[in-house]
Design a protein around this nucleic acid. Structure first.
Lengths: 173, 173
DNA sequence: TATAATTGTTATGAGCTATATCAAATAGCG
DNA sequence: CGCTATTTGATATAGCTCATAACAATTATA
């Protein structure tokens, strides 16, 4: 699982070639490029930060081999027993067809099980297994003590809550 | 180009079926699911917000048919004349192989051109065309008057700059 | 009962990201 | 100079995420 990149992600690295502007002005070797108004563009900075956060999450939870999406499914299962696939998926913004393979993965690792509902035999109730509960508990500890702790150290407790508040505004606009 | 979704993105929508918890307690019809600790998980809220911001960007710039990534390329070209493909791509975190098709798209729309460098005949200098400059200018206006204006209205000018500061910290940690 | 809607599923396609590899050109070193 | 290594743009390919259409089984509804 290599580092995630994106159209709006990595920092520039040092280069090695001389360059000359069309105006003919000599440019210092390997001068970093100008970001221009990108550094003020919220979406640009936002995406870079988001990628870093996910990278860090994955690294912190790496012993348990859980992606952010998988973690979010387990958390939802813990807090919402008796719900079916569609309910879990749509709550997380996952389309039902795409949730099938995802659940297959979690179920094959015995972190959850599908149980055919007796009230509506079309639907599958998704339940955490004991193993799933245990893995989730360990994951939550790793997230709290490593991932969120690092973010707290970087932003400060007040900064973190201010950030959460703004993110909340943004996500429901 | 349908709305972007993600494993960590959309808001829950109303549902329509009755449900009952395993404990047997009847649950109000279509009760929204509990997010649990997800609502405090920075990465989760972050990703949702990021998707909204990109959605809004795309919508605001829709008349010009520019994605955030394409916009960022044009901005970089404007501020860094005389640079080659590799320099532009790596500055934006785009891998060179993936930048080829992206540039093909922009070049086929005559927004930029590749010019073989006379100093180093391996490299292609990427230049904005007049049309590219014009499209970029219009895009920047749309971004400023619609996209960023909306974000400013939502966050306030002080909130916006506070947010930018925190995003900056996050993206270089 | 006949028709419509829902659930889980499969198939499939678009888009983005990552790696390996290649030819052409250049750099660097003996 | 001549040989090797590196760089550049490009191609091919694979994996992952996201999206839509369609289908069988089941349930809801007119």
């Amino acid at each position: 699982m290599a580092a995630t990149r994106s159209a709006v992600s990595r920092a520039p690295r040092a280069r090695s070639k001389a360059a000359e502007t069309p105006q003919g002005a000599a440019v210092a070797d390997s001068a970093p490029l100008q970001l221009g108004e990108l550094s003020e563009l919220l979406g640009y900075v936002f995406k870079r930060a988001q990628l870093r956060i996910f990278e860090d999450f994955i690294r912190c939870v790496e012993p348990l081999q859980l992606t952010p999406a998988q973690f979010s499914v387990l958390v939802l299962l813990e807090h919402n027993p008796g719900r079916n696939q569609t309910e879990i998926a749509t709550t997380l913004g996952i389309l039902r067809p795409n949730f099938v393979a995802m659940l297959d993965g979690l179920e094959s690792r015995e972190l959850c099980v599908r149980v055919r509902s007796t009230q509506d035999r079309r639907s599958h109730i998704v339940m955490l297994t004991d193993k799933g509960r245990s893995v989730l508990a360990r994951a939550k500890r790793l997230v709290a003590t490593k991932h969120e702790a690092r973010l707290n150290a970087l932003l400060g407790e007040d900064g973190r809550s201010a950030l959460l508040g703004m993110l909340d505004k943004l996500s429901k606009f």
